[in-house]
Design a protein around this nucleic acid. Structure first.
Lengths: 153, 153
DNA sequence: GCAAATTCATTCGTATGCAAATGATATCAA
DNA sequence: TTGATATCATTTGCATACGAATGAATTTGC
């Protein structure tokens, strides 16, 4: 093959998007942007709590008192991250901490009355946030998307 | 309605998942987990660069020299975030900075020779990362997922 | 029953990510 | 032309996010 033929082949491949790497088509990049958009929508509806903080409260509301570590597992945060989240919720009086009577390694976390009121007040907003996040999709598309996203996560 | 009837109604609603809020079904929570998984896959293949750093290099490789602000727009980072990313790439000699001759507000960013070598070496790995991230899906599912994800992002 | 391995929590360091404030420069409009 | 606006970059503060190291407590394996 001549050099010119080779160049022609490359140009054609470029036109067909076979050779070039396009960041904006990569699943990781789009995933990051979709997540950013969701966080922005969340913040526009719930200004005084972050998504991780909300996740912690919602999970505690769902399952009741649990250890900090177990809570982290349930809301997909490592130990260092969950500690920071719980510290801030504690400082705001939304959760309270106590020592496990039997296993002295464990730090138990539970909602305070104020935390319970907060999460009950916020859950309807969270449903709105989910709706708004999925708004670009039809109901059928949203169902498909959630099914496939769950397989990836 | 009696108290017992009321309780029964609530139990049934719970079974039907109509009344309870399940964090693990919310798009925001699953999106966060999917993103975490992707970042972990990325790190397992490319240990010496983060996804945002890679994005900056890949975009510079694609479009050539541009301003820090413009680069941020293209890779979906705000000004404060892109500054940190570029600072670290500069410290490692992968990009170089210069002042725009005409518009003195602008800071131009470009790949160094080393940066160009790095991104050329890494792009094949990035394709592997994309493949591995999408591995739980069939080819058809992956195509559908990417289409819907792009609509959300 | 005891040493090894595991688990739980904490701390440190590094890297996004964004809001808000600030300063420098450029553009627009009266 | 100049005053109001807008844009570009920086800085600060706060909040995830995670690897690695550490210490305390528990469980396992022999």
């Amino acid at each position: 093959m001549s050099g010119e033929d080779n160049l022609l082949r490359l140009v054609k491949a470029d036109e067909l998007d076979e050779n070039n790497y396009h960041l904006q088509d990569q699943v990781g990049f789009i995933l990051r942007k979709a997540h950013q958009r969701h966080v922005a929508i969340f913040a526009s509806h719930i200004a005084d709590l972050t998504p991780p903080q909300f996740a912690a409260l919602a999970k505690l509301y769902d399952i009741g008192e649990t250890s900090q570590n177990q809570l982290g597992t349930l809301i997909a945060m490592d130990a260092a991250t969950v500690k920071g989240v719980i510290d801030r919720l504690k400082a705001r009086g939304l959760v309270e901490l106590s020592k496990h009577e039997v296993d002295k390694r464990r730090l138990l976390v539970n909602l305070t009355a104020e935390g319970r009121e907060a999460i009950e007040r916020l859950i309807p907003l969270a449903r709105t946030i989910t709706e708004e996040t999925l708004a670009p999709l039809t109901a059928k598309e949203a169902a498909t998307f959630l099914r496939l996203l769950a397989k990836l996560a």
